[in-house]
Lab assay of single mutants.
Amino acid sequence: MTGIVKWFNADKGFGFITPDDGSKDVFVHFSAIQNDGYKSLDEGQKVSFTIESGAKGPAAGNVTSL
């Protein structure tokens, strides 16, 4: 699925993605970002991701920028 990064705190390594389908915002951890180098996201960035079952509920996985 796709969405827009609502916010991401690079110091803490997590944030939230707002899915394009209008569903509830999804937690994203830096370890789910699939790019080389520094793993961070920018507010407003368009991303593709999967929904994984995290310890505290749904979380984004396999996050790639579009």
Results as ranks from 00 to 15, higher is better:
Met1His: 11
Met1Val: 10
Met1Asn: 08
Thr2Lys: 08
Thr2Cys: 08
Gly3Glu: 00
Gly3Ile: 01
Ile4Tyr: 11
Val5Pro: 00
Val5Lys: 00
Val5Tyr: 01
Val5Gln: 00
Lys6Met: 04
Lys6Pro: 01
Lys6Val: 05
Lys6Ser: 06
Phe8Leu: 02
Phe8Arg: 01
Phe8Ser: 01
Asn9Tyr: 06
Asn9Asp: 11
Asn9Ser: 12
Ala10Pro: 12
Ala10His: 14
Ala10Arg: 14
Ala10Gln: 12
Ala10Thr: 13
Ala10Met: 11
Asp11His: 15
Asp11Arg: 15
Asp11Phe: 15
Asp11Pro: 08
Asp11Glu: 14
Lys12Trp: 12
Lys12Pro: 02
Lys12Cys: 10
Lys12Met: 12
Lys12Leu: 12
Lys12Asn: 05
Gly13Ile: 02
Gly13Lys: 04
Gly13Ser: 03
Gly13Pro: 00
Phe14Val: 06
Gly15His: 00
Phe16Gln: 03
Phe16Cys: 04
Ile17Met: 02
Ile17Gly: 00
Ile17Tyr: 00
Thr18Gly: 05
Thr18Ile: 15
Thr18Asp: 03
Pro19Asp: 02
Pro19Ala: 04
Pro19Tyr: 06
Asp20Thr: 08
Asp20His: 08
Asp20Met: 10
Asp20Cys: 15
Asp20Pro: 03
Asp21Phe: 07
Gly22Met: 07
Gly22Pro: 03
Gly22Glu: 05
Gly22Phe: 06
Gly22Ser: 06
Ser23Leu: 06
Lys24His: 11
Lys24Gln: 14
Asp25Ile: 06
Asp25Pro: 07
Val26Gly: 00
Val26Thr: 03
Val26Ile: 13
Val28Lys: 00
Val28His: 00
Val28Cys: 06
His29Arg: 04
His29Phe: 09
His29Gln: 04
Phe30Met: 09
Ser31Thr: 13
Ala32Glu: 06
Ala32Ser: 11
Ala32Ile: 04
Ala32Asp: 06
Ala32Phe: 04
Ile33Pro: 02
Ile33Ser: 03
Ile33Thr: 03
Gln34Thr: 13
Gln34Leu: 13
Gln34His: 10
Gln34Met: 13
Asn35Gln: 14
Asn35Leu: 12
Asp36Leu: 12
Asp36Trp: 11
Asp36Gln: 13
Asp36Thr: 13
Asp36Ile: 11
Gly37His: 09
Gly37Glu: 10
Gly37Ser: 10
Tyr38Asp: 09
Tyr38Glu: 10
Tyr38Ser: 10
Lys39Val: 07
Lys39Cys: 10
Lys39Met: 08
Ser40Gln: 10
Ser40Met: 12
Ser40Gly: 11
Leu41Thr: 02
Leu41Ser: 01
Leu41Glu: 01
Leu41Phe: 05
Leu41Gln: 01
Asp42Ala: 14
Asp42Asn: 14
Gly44Phe: 05
Gly44Leu: 04
Lys46Leu: 11
Lys46Tyr: 10
Val47Met: 02
Val47Cys: 04
Val47Glu: 00
Ser48Gly: 08
Ser48Met: 13
Ser48Asn: 09
Ser48Gln: 12
Ser48Glu: 08
Ser48Ala: 13
Phe49Leu: 03
Phe49Lys: 00
Phe49Asn: 00
Thr50Trp: 09
Ile51Val: 11
Ile51Asn: 04
Ile51Tyr: 10
Glu52His: 13
Glu52Val: 15
Ser53Trp: 15
Gly54Cys: 10
Gly54Trp: 11
Gly54Phe: 10
Ala55Ile: 12
Ala55Phe: 13
Gly57Arg: 10
Gly57Asn: 07
Gly57Met: 06
Gly57Glu: 04
Pro58Asn: 10
Pro58Gln: 10
Pro58Met: 11
Pro58His: 10
Ala59Trp: 13
Ala59Pro: 02
Ala60Gly: 04
Ala60Arg: 01
Ala60Val: 04
Ala60His: 02
Ala60Tyr: 02
Gly61Arg: 15
Gly61Ala: 15
Asn62Gln: 11
Asn62Ser: 11
Asn62Lys: 11
Val63Ser: 01
Val63Ile: 05
Thr64Cys: 11
Thr64Arg: 14
Ser65Tyr: 14
Leu66Met: 12
Leu66Val: 11
Leu66Ser: 08
Leu66Glu: 07
Leu66Arg: 08
